[in-house]
């Protein structure tokens, strides 16, 4: 099997799942689709490492994480500017339906990136704490701490009558 066929099969098997996970990181479906699409393009451009990976899905998840990270770094800055009133979001780009899922995506976006990654990998990607730790390169205890902090913050953010403290977006383990 040539490299392109391998990437094509992986694209068919994992694309949707990876987009779902990355959408939890970046909080936007279209952006998640684009990030995962970019990740597959990078893999196809240099497939050698991918072909030798023991776990193709894990390898691709990390590739997508790398792409997403560059984006939510910019997005985090953008979000801070929005909250400070220095940037106005066009009405068309704000979800008009206040569904629970949009609320959860929005709440995820309020977590600090390291906390958000741990929560998404554990709860959306269904990775164990050990797998999350291996993926992020941090101790399992750190992952547990981030998960505990993330769950507590999400519960607060999802409460209808609670004001979201901006500070969560600035601290992480």
């Amino acid at each position: 099997m040539d490299a392109e066929d391998a990437v094509r099969q992986a694209y068919e098997a994992y694309y949707r799942r990876l987009v779902t996970q990355v959408s939890g990181l970046v909080g936007d479906l279209a952006e998640a689709e684009d990030a995962v699409h970019e990740a597959f393009a990078r893999v196809l451009a240099s497939p050698r490492s991918f072909l030798h990976a023991d776990d193709a899905e894990r390898w691709l998840r990390v590739a997508a994480l790398n792409v997403a990270r560059t984006r939510y770094r910019r997005r985090w800055l953008f979000d801070r500017l929005v909250r400070s009133g220095r940037v106005e979001i066009a009405p068309g780009s704000v979800p008009g339906v206040s569904g629970d899922r949009v609320a959860l995506l929005a709440a995820l976006r309020r977590l600090a990136p390291p906390t958000r990654e741990a929560v998404v990998l554990h709860h959306l990607a269904d990775l164990s704490v050990a797998e999350v730790a291996a993926t992020l390169g941090v101790p399992a205890g750190t992952v547990k701490a981030r998960l505990a902090r993330g769950r507590a913050a999400l519960a607060r953010f999802l409460s209808d009558d609670e004001t979201v403290p901006l500070a969560e977006g600035l601290k992480h383990a």
Binding site: Y11, L29, H37, L158, D160
Partner: peptide
């Protein structure tokens, strides 16, 4: 406080994903 429902998030977003 409401608990986050990741299962439904996975399901709904997964349904919405478009694959070029």
């Amino acid at each position: 406080m409401r608990e986050p429902d990741f299962e439904r998030l996975r399901s709904e977003v997964g349904d919405a994903v478009r694959q070029p």
